[in-house]
């Protein structure tokens, strides 16, 4: 398994329940195939450097995890079709292997 990091920019209008449901879905995708979530960091609402989809601020979340390549591809697919996720980035962390 290799180390990855995913950053999510979530629509700030999403309520707490919705956000928790979304994050547990993300965790579920990672752990479904033997992945491990190492740490989670909720930055909370942060001002965006420029407007995205009419939003001036958004909710940032960072998850560090270990997983295999197919899991990452699946996570990528799921996040792309998840509407409240305005933007996301999955990064391979060679230095944390």
């Amino acid at each position: 398994m290799k180390a990855y990091e995913v950053m999510l920019i979530i629509d700030p209008s999403l309520d707490d329940d919705g956000r928790e449901a979304l994050l547990s879905k993300v965790r579920g995708v990672i752990t479904a195939d033997g992945g491990v979530v190492d740490s989670e960091d909720a930055w909370g609402k942060r001002k965006l450097a420029y407007e995205i989809a009419g939003l001036a601020e958004a909710d940032y979340h960072v998850l560090m995890f270990h997983a295999d390549a197919p899991t990452v591809a699946e996570l990528d697919r799921v996040l792309k079709i998840t509407d409240p996720v305005v933007r996301f980035k999955i990064i391979r962390r060679d230095d944390l292997d």
Binding site: I9, L48, A49, I91
Partner: peptide, 11 residues
């Protein structure tokens, strides 16, 4: 460039 994509720093 990554930070720009994630709107952490401006373009």
């Amino acid at each position: 460039k990554r930070a720009r994509e994630m709107a952490l720093v401006p373009y």
